[in-house]
């Protein structure tokens, strides 16, 4: 499994899919986040691997 962390929310998805597919499963628009794997920014076509945690940085601010 792969863990996606966005602020206080955590999502678990199966490994082996693209990050874009994982975001879709979690109902997160790729346009609204930047994804970080082990300190490195990654693109949505990356395949997510078993056991890893992807940090999602929210990019939208209001006001």
């Amino acid at each position: 499994m792969v863990k996606l962390v966005l602020r206080k929310d955590e999502f678990e998805v199966r490994h082996g899919m693209t990050l874009e597919a994982a975001l879709k499963k979690c109902g997160i628009l790729p346009e609204s986040v930047v994804a970080i794997r082990e300190g490195e920014m990654i693109t949505e076509d990356e395949i997510i691997k078993d056991g890893e945690t992807i940090r999602l940085v929210a990019v939208i601010s209001g006001g």
Binding site: L29, E31, S32, I60, S61, G62, G63
Partner: peptide, 19 residues
């Protein structure tokens, strides 16, 4: 975020445009 900006109209419009 600024605590007062949560749920703001501009954030809603941004979400709509991102969809």
């Amino acid at each position: 975020e600024c605590p007062h900006a949560l749920g703001s109209t501009s954030t809603y419009y941004k979400e709509v445009l991102n969809r």
